[in-house]
Nucleic acid binder design. Structure first.
Lengths: 144, 144
DNA sequence: TATTGTTATACTCTATAACTATA
DNA sequence: TATAGTTATAGAGTATAACAATA
C-alpha cells in the first residue's frame, strides 16, 4: 500500500491535468466549441440557469473574462440571456435546446473524443475511479 | 452502483480539470514558477534528462512553444542544456540542483498550496483515489 | 531528404482598469 | 455606496511559418 503523500499526489495531479488540458486544446476545428465555451455549456447543463457572476466564479475566471465566451455562445443561439425581473442588474443565462444539442457526444469534438477513448481503452473499474476523482478534483480546486 | 457512462465521466472530468487549472493559474506572484515551467521541471524531475522534442511531446505542445519556457528555466539556472555528443542536433535538458530545490513544497507556490489543501481537507482514502486517478488521466490524454 | 531546434508572428484565453446601470 | 455587468487594453501561453544546422 503506497503512502500517498500529499506532495506526491499534488505533483502527479498537476502534471496529468496539465497534459490533458493541453491535449484537449488541440482539437479546435472550424465551428467547434472552444474549451471555455464547452465548459460553460456543461456547467449550465449540469447546474441550471446562472448569472454571469455565478458562472465566472464557477469557472474560476473573472467576470470580465467570461464576457466574450458568453457573447459568442449567445450569438450562436446556444445560450439565452434573460434579465432578472427582481434585480435589473442581473443577467441570467439559460442553455437553449441548440446548446444542449451542441453538447451531445456526436456534436462536441472534445467530449466525444474523451468519451470514445474512455469507452475503448478503460475498464469499468477504471471508469469508476475517474468518476470518483472528478468531484475530488473540484473540491480541491475550491479549497486551494 | 452508478453506471459510469463514458460520456458522463468525460464531461465530469472535463469540467473539474478545467476549473483546477484555471484556479492554479491565479497564483502567479513575482518570481514564482509559471504553470508550464512547473510542469516541465516536474517532468524532468520525474523522468530524468530529455530532449526538447521529447519534452514538447510529453507536455503536449509544439517544439516551438516549449522554447520560451526552456529558455526562461535555463536563464535562471533551473535547468541545464547539454548537447548530445552522439547527435549534434539534439539538446538534452537536465534539471539542476537549484531546479529541484525550486520544486520543493516550500518554494513552489502551486504545488505547495495543492499539497496543503490535500493534507488538510482530504482523507487517506481520498488521497488514494486521486493517486490512482493521475496515471489514468495521463493515459487518457495519451489515448485521445 | 528528414530531423532537431530557433526565430518571428499571430491567436486564444484570461487579467486589470475604467466605466455604466441598478440597487 | 455597493453590486452586476460591459468595454478597452495588456499579458501569458500556445500555434504556424520560415529558417539553420545536423543527420
Amino acid at each position: 500500500m503506497p503512502a500517498n503523500e500529499p506532495g506526491d499526489v499534488a505533483a502527479a495531479l498537476f502534471l496529468s491535468i496539465g497534459v490533458l488540458v493541453r491535449r484537449l486544446r488541440q482539437f479546435q476545428a472550424e465551428g467547434d466549441l472552444s474549451l471555455p465555451e464547452t465548459s460553460v455549456l456543461r456547467r449550465l447543463e449540469r447546474g441550471g440557469p446562472a448569472t454571469v457572476t455565478a458562472l465566472a466564479k464557477g469557472e474560476q475566471i473573472s467576470v470580465q473574462s467570461i464576457g466574450s465566451t458568453l457573447a459568442a455562445l449567445e450569438s450562436r443561439g446556444l445560450i439565452e440571456r434573460r434579465s432578472d425581473p427582481a434585480d435589473g442588474r442581473r443577467a441570467v443565462m439559460h442553455i437553449t435546446r441548440a446548446g444542449t444539442h451542441a453538447m451531445s457526444d456526436k456534436r462536441n469534438v472534445r467530449i466525444g473524443r474523451m468519451t470514445r477513448a474512455l469507452a475503448d481503452g478503460f475498464t469499468p473499474a477504471e471508469l469508476a475511479q475517474l468518476t470518483a476523482a472528478a468531484p475530488l478534483i473540484e473540491r480541491l480546486a475550491a479549497s486551494i
